[in-house]
Amino acid sequence: MFDNLNDLYQQVILDHSKAPRNFGELPGADHFAEGRNPLCGDQVSVAVKMQGDVIEDIRFKGSGCAIAKASASVMTTALKGKTLNEARTLFEKFHELVLTGQAAPCAQLGKLSVFGGVHRYPARVKCAILAWHAALAAMAGDQKKVSTE
């Protein structure tokens, strides 16, 4: 009955939502931000430990739907070791992917490409980018709350 949904709920997404990576407190973190989706009350907080310009470690906490949780989880694996600028570029490509289903040809999206089905469910785009907003806000400032609205 749900075959149509297989492109949204890909195996990797289900897997990451069940067993999120980099989930929990991050001792020694120096940048934090919280993201909120007012539509559903979902909330994710991201903690980052920067080494100069480089993301040395990153973790998240919070609750959300499978898309939101998996996105946060895959994001943390993608961002570790990246510079702030690389992180911003990656988000732009990811954002384009979840909005249009199309990734720029040179995009090194890797596992992030499993979110290619999200664009067909406009109500769920916010779920996919919630953690990214929080992570970028954390790295840009230090203590911030961001909202998907």
Binding site: L5, L8, C40, G64, C65, A66, I67, A68, R124, C127
Partner: peptide
């Protein structure tokens, strides 16, 4: 299973 997933399905 999160409510948004239930509602989508």
């Amino acid at each position: 299973i999160h409510a948004h997933d239930v509602v989508t399905f």
